[in-house]
Amino acid sequence: MAKKSNTQESLALAFEILKRIPKSHQVTAKELHQQLQHIGIERDLRTIQRNLEMLCEHFDIIRDERSKPYGYRWNKNSEGMSLPKLSAQEALLLSLAEEYLIKLLPANIAASLDGFFQEAKHKLNPTGNSSKEREWLKKVRVVSETQPLLPPKISTETFNSISEALFHDRLLNIEYYNAKQEQKSVLVMPLGLAQQGQRMYLVCRFDGYDNERSIAVHRVRKATVSSFGFERPKEFKLSQYDADGRFGFGEGELVKLSFSINKQVGRYLFETPLSEDQTIDEYDNKMNVMATVVESKQLKCWLLGFGDNVWNVRLIK
């Protein structure tokens, strides 16, 4: 039985290596070693090198021995197991997804897509024929509405554990510190991940409680995936959690907000209203605004940011 298990593991490893050998460019044993580590396959570099030597003998794989480290790729005329040839449009889509969505993908899926991302970069390189698509990446950008901040540092190992527990619905042991710098160690039920600006939050339930909380992922010092699973609460929806203003430090309580604002400053509220029921009364130099919103610290900070340009603020519960 042990021999059969070892054979299956060897075949699985060879298959994962074959999937990651590209046709359009070369990859080194070290790069393959890192890609396999990202999806949880722990083998030493020498094992990967031995597998590559064996695969070169049995498959139409070219090893470039002109310099070290050696590069490997499928023969361009071979059907092989290389990734499907990407169109310029598909390469553009993948490049944008990697830049803006990679943190919202489960870590194991993001790692499995690494070969596609590398293929997309190669497709859009300056020596290729996809100049218009490559230039498009320079023509679009997601910009910040507030003062730009550098993203906080998040441990890759910690994030991978959080992602794994969330993906498989497993309980998670975490060690973190809160805003008061107090150290905590808790068992949580991970329910969602949300990115707000440069910060990422883990929405979870603490063991023994039936309410949800948000923990800044960069404050998690250590995360260990439990072997115990859990059933996600049917009443919980991440979209509703967001709609209730929980990421703006609110409790979901709706209030009727009214205020006066300098007309020049507040004119954009015609284009991007606060709510579906927003109403605006215009005067010579001011506007009176009324809307139903979620009461939160974020709302208060938004109003304070206008300084003397906003007055007569009222919240009716």
Rank of each mutant, 00 (worst) to 15 (best):
E251P: 03
G252R: 04
G252K: 06
E253L: 14
L254A: 08
L254M: 08
V255I: 15
V255M: 12
V255P: 06
V255N: 10
V255T: 14
K256A: 04
L257A: 01
S258V: 05
S258I: 07
S258G: 06
S258R: 10
S258W: 05
F259P: 06
F259R: 11
S260I: 08
S260N: 08
S260D: 11
I261P: 00
N262S: 15
K263Q: 09
Q264D: 13
Q264G: 15
Q264T: 13
V265F: 05
V265N: 07
G266M: 02
R267V: 12
R267Y: 13
R267P: 02
R267S: 11
Y268S: 03
L269K: 06
L269E: 07
F270Y: 12
F270K: 14
F270D: 05
F270I: 04
F270R: 10
E271K: 03
E271T: 12
E271D: 11
T272C: 13
T272P: 01
T272D: 12
P273Y: 02
P273S: 08
P273G: 05
P273C: 06
L274P: 04
S275H: 01
S275V: 03
S275E: 06
D277R: 05
D277N: 09
Q278Y: 08
Q278A: 10
Q278E: 13
T279P: 01
T279N: 12
T279R: 13
T279D: 06
T279C: 07
I280C: 01
I280N: 00
I280A: 03
I280Q: 00
D281H: 14
D281I: 15
D281N: 14
D281E: 12
E282V: 13
E282Q: 14
E282R: 14
E282T: 10
Y283H: 08
D284S: 14
D284H: 15
N285K: 09
N285H: 15
K286H: 11
M287V: 05
M287T: 02
N288W: 03
N288S: 09
N288K: 08
N288P: 03
N288F: 04
V289D: 00
M290E: 14
M290Q: 15
